[in-house]
Amino acid sequence: MSNADITKEEILAVFPKVAATMADALGCDVEKVKLDSSLIDDLGAESIDFLDIVFRLERAFKVKIPRGKIVEEARGDLSESEFDQGGVVSAAGFERLKAYLNEVPAERFKSPLKVADIPRLFTVETFCKMVIRQQRAAAAAAGGGAAPA
């Protein structure tokens, strides 16, 4: 499933609830949560916060978000060994990641990139898109159209 066909309107529709959920999880003011905020660098998220955010988003949007989904989907048809070697993202993987995380400013992508550092790239918009993809997947599985935010 691609990120490219997700519209700005769809993103803005889910953003308020995503922002409120993140503010709750991170114990910060919702005004601090911007669409382009980096979760780690701007909002101070740590690894446990990612788990917290995913579970809160699941409950807020009533979708199932498999952990590790972002990296798995970014990898696409690349095998794990094509995507990274020894924990470092390969050149092909790097390009795939840049295309998939197209909401992340290009200057934030630094090569070499460790797989463990991929979450440093994630912005609030990354999670908005993840929610939208899961809503679409749930709607498709149910045989209906797009789910409301």
């Binding site: 709750d24 999880a25 740590e46 446990i48 916060d49 917290d52």
Partner: peptide
């Protein structure tokens, strides 16, 4: 104390 909620251990 009756309920502890939104518990998070970060480290």
């Amino acid at each position: 104390a009756r309920r502890v909620s939104d518990v998070k251990l970060r480290a």
